[in-house]
Simulated scan of single mutants.
Amino acid sequence: MITDRADGKRALGYPAAAGVFAVGMAGTTLPTPLYGLYREQLGFSELMVTVVFAVYALGVITVLLLAGNVSDETGRRPVLLCALGLSAASALCFLFEGGLPLLLVGRVLSGFAAGLFSGAATAAVLELAKPGQEAHAGFAATAANMGGLGCGPLLSGLLAQYTPWPLALPFLVHLVLVAMAAAVTWFLPETVAHPHRPRTLRPQGLRVPPEVRGVFGPSAVAAFAGFALLGLFTAVAPAFVSQTLDEHNLAVTGLVVFTVFLASTAGQLLTGRIGVRRALPVGCLVLVVGLLLVATSLAVTALPVLVVGAVCGGIGQGLAFRAGLTAVGGAAPPEHRGGTISAFFLVAYLGISLPVVGVGALTLELGLRGAGLTFSACVIVLAVAVGLYVWRRPLTDAD
């Protein structure tokens, strides 16, 4: 189903596709440092912040269930262009925000965009690699995902803190970046050999090809645990930084969130050096250490410890995430690769949404600190369990 890409149309290769991927994912986390401003302006609770965040994840999951494999049939480029259009629509919702309903619509549209990007952009980056570039392309795909997610809060935090129009300028800048990404996407080679319009749009669920099932389970559970940590930082950490640590600089908030995603990218880079077999269990172990540090920062109210926990947890998440994605993507047959990768991301985004809403609900009874400690304990148990499993039954580098 995938072309051999030997038609000389590879002037724009996998780095260009990775750049488009990064721009798209940056838009999904752009509002993160701004939630405090929205909370003051609209007067909603911390629970509602996590609900607004989780609505995004609900949009991702919906698309992955309904259309996670659509790029395997229609082609990568049309799906990427559609995702960029949804990203632009989301930015416009935030630009013209007049209350909570439009915020929710903007987050849902952003989730739809991320759901399309997750499978189609990852597959496009992998398939645009020339022979011998597969490892570099695998890193580019996961780094674009995590790097884009990290750059969103950093960009909006800096713009909101040091320029006029804190609730408008970040989204105006993103619209410009989306337009540039759309122009690049238009000239990307199509990697699906015979793209066609699917007859029906049906839920794909979590079905994966038989040859992938051996690696899918532990890889997806590790991704769930790692994305739960990312969800904590993108939805709850900004409130902890401002309310508990009394740090109200939005650029600092964005930098703290950026740190965990930057560390994730570093962890992904390390995965290529130590191999899939060791990266998954080691990543789970490092993730546990990071969660322990995050819990410590909550207990002693220390920003430096939170930053160190973000670095350590991000590295662990990156190690486990790239190892799992590499194993799943490598085991999937080309004609089902987009759908299989989408199923992997579906489990990951369950991790970034369900636990975070739980944290928001717990804040009503336990407060922000108590909810964070409870969350950390639960994810530590999960990460330890999957880490021990893959340590005893390791994946192979060839998976």
Rank of each mutant, 00 (worst) to 15 (best):
T3M: 00
D4L: 11
K9N: 13
A18N: 04
G19I: 09
V20S: 09
F21S: 04
G24L: 09
T28G: 04
P33C: 13
Y35M: 09
Y35P: 06
Y38Q: 06
R39H: 07
Q41R: 15
L47Q: 11
T50E: 12
V51P: 01
V52R: 00
A54F: 01
L58D: 02
L66A: 13
G68I: 08
D72C: 02
R76P: 04
R77N: 05
P78T: 05
P78L: 07
V79A: 05
V79P: 06
L84N: 03
L84M: 12
G85W: 11
L92N: 04
C93R: 03
F96E: 13
E97Q: 13
P101I: 15
L103V: 15
L104P: 01
G106K: 04
R107I: 10
V108I: 15
V108N: 00
L109G: 08
G111R: 06
G115F: 06
L116M: 14
L116S: 07
A120D: 08
T122K: 04
A124D: 14
L126A: 10
L128Q: 09
K130L: 13
P131I: 11
A135R: 00
G138Y: 07
F139H: 10
A140T: 05
A140R: 03
T142F: 00
A143C: 10
N145L: 12
N145I: 04
M146H: 12
C151G: 02
L154S: 08
L154Q: 11
L158R: 07
L159G: 03
Y162G: 10
V173K: 05
L177R: 03
V178W: 09
T185L: 03
L188A: 09
L188E: 10
V192A: 11
A193T: 03
H194Q: 14
H194N: 14
R197L: 15
R202N: 03
G205T: 12
R207A: 14
R207V: 14
R207H: 13
P210H: 14
E211W: 00
G214D: 09
A222I: 04
A222V: 02
G226H: 03
F227R: 02
L230H: 08
V236H: 02
V236G: 05
H248I: 10
A251G: 15
V252K: 07
G254K: 06
V257C: 10
A263V: 08
A266C: 14
L269P: 00
G272D: 13
R273C: 02
G275D: 08
L285M: 12
L287P: 02
V288Y: 01
G290S: 11
L291G: 02
L292C: 14
S297N: 04
A299M: 12
A299N: 08
P304Q: 14
V305L: 15
G314K: 06
G314T: 05
G316K: 03
A320D: 05
R322D: 10
A323Y: 01
G324K: 05
L325Y: 02
T326F: 01
A331H: 00
A332Y: 04
P334W: 07
R337L: 09
R337D: 05
G339I: 09
I341H: 05
V347R: 00
V347E: 08
A348W: 00
I352P: 00
V356Y: 03
G358P: 06
L362C: 08
L362N: 05
G370N: 11
F375R: 10
V381Y: 07
V381S: 02
L382K: 02
V384G: 01
G387R: 01
Y389G: 01
V390I: 04
R393P: 01
L395S: 01
T396A: 14
T396W: 02
D397I: 07
